Computed example of a mutant assay.
Amino acid sequence: MLIEKVIRKLKNNPDYKWESPYTTRDLIAISWVRLWQAIRGLCLKPFMKRSSGLVFLGRQVKVRHAYQIEAGKNLILEDNVFVNALSFNGVKFGDHVSIGRNSTLLGTGIVSHKGIGITIGSRTGINAGAYLGGQGGITIGDDVIMGPNVQIFSENHNFSDPDIIIKEQGLTRSGVIIGSNCWIGGGATILDGVTVGNGCVIAAGSVVNKSVPDNSIVAGVPARIIKSRI
Rank of each mutant, 00 (worst) to 15 (best):
residue 2 L to T: 15
residue 3 I to L: 12
residue 5 K to A: 13
residue 7 I to K: 04
residue 8 R to M: 08
residue 11 K to Q: 00
residue 17 K to N: 01
residue 17 K to Q: 06
residue 19 E to N: 13
residue 20 S to P: 00
residue 20 S to D: 15
residue 22 Y to F: 14
residue 22 Y to G: 08
residue 24 T to L: 15
residue 30 I to S: 13
residue 34 R to Q: 15
residue 34 R to G: 09
residue 35 L to H: 05
residue 35 L to S: 12
residue 40 R to P: 13
residue 44 L to V: 14
residue 44 L to M: 11
residue 49 K to C: 07
residue 49 K to I: 01
residue 50 R to P: 11
residue 51 S to E: 09
residue 53 G to W: 02
residue 53 G to Y: 08
residue 54 L to R: 05
residue 59 R to C: 08
residue 60 Q to W: 15
residue 60 Q to A: 14
residue 61 V to M: 09
residue 66 A to E: 03
residue 67 Y to M: 13
residue 68 Q to Y: 04
residue 71 A to H: 13
residue 73 K to R: 13
residue 75 L to G: 02
residue 75 L to S: 01
residue 76 I to E: 04
residue 76 I to H: 07
residue 76 I to V: 12
residue 78 E to L: 14
residue 78 E to Y: 11
residue 79 D to S: 11
residue 80 N to W: 04
residue 80 N to K: 02
residue 81 V to Y: 05
residue 82 F to K: 04
residue 83 V to S: 00
residue 83 V to A: 07
residue 83 V to Y: 03
residue 83 V to H: 05
residue 84 N to S: 15
residue 84 N to Y: 10
residue 84 N to T: 08
residue 90 G to I: 02
residue 90 G to H: 09
residue 90 G to S: 10
residue 94 G to N: 05
residue 94 G to F: 09
residue 95 D to I: 14
residue 95 D to G: 10
residue 100 G to S: 12
residue 101 R to Q: 14
residue 105 L to K: 08
residue 105 L to P: 00
residue 105 L to R: 08
residue 105 L to E: 08
residue 106 L to Y: 14
residue 107 G to Y: 07
residue 110 I to P: 12
residue 113 H to P: 02
residue 117 G to W: 09
residue 118 I to G: 04
residue 122 S to A: 02
residue 123 R to L: 09
residue 124 T to C: 06
residue 125 G to E: 02
residue 128 A to H: 07
residue 129 G to K: 09
residue 130 A to P: 12
residue 133 G to D: 06
residue 134 G to V: 06
residue 135 Q to N: 06
residue 135 Q to D: 07
residue 136 G to L: 03
residue 141 G to D: 07
residue 143 D to V: 03
residue 145 I to T: 14
residue 146 M to S: 11
residue 149 N to T: 13
residue 149 N to Y: 00
residue 149 N to A: 07
residue 153 F to W: 15
residue 154 S to K: 06
residue 156 N to H: 00
residue 156 N to W: 05
residue 159 F to D: 13
residue 160 S to Y: 05
residue 162 P to H: 06
residue 168 E to F: 07
residue 168 E to K: 15
residue 169 Q to R: 11
residue 171 L to N: 13
residue 173 R to K: 15
residue 174 S to T: 11
residue 179 G to K: 09
residue 179 G to M: 13
residue 180 S to P: 06
residue 181 N to V: 12
residue 181 N to E: 14
residue 184 I to V: 15
residue 186 G to K: 03
residue 186 G to Y: 00
residue 187 G to F: 01
residue 190 I to S: 00
residue 190 I to E: 05
residue 191 L to W: 04
residue 195 T to E: 12
residue 200 C to P: 04
residue 201 V to S: 03
residue 201 V to G: 07
residue 202 I to T: 12
residue 206 S to I: 12
residue 208 V to Y: 03
residue 208 V to N: 05
residue 210 K to A: 07
residue 210 K to F: 14
residue 212 V to A: 03
residue 216 S to E: 09
residue 220 G to Q: 11
residue 222 P to E: 01
residue 224 R to M: 11
residue 226 I to L: 06
residue 227 K to P: 01
residue 229 R to I: 04
residue 229 R to F: 02
residue 229 R to S: 03
residue 229 R to E: 02
residue 230 I to R: 05
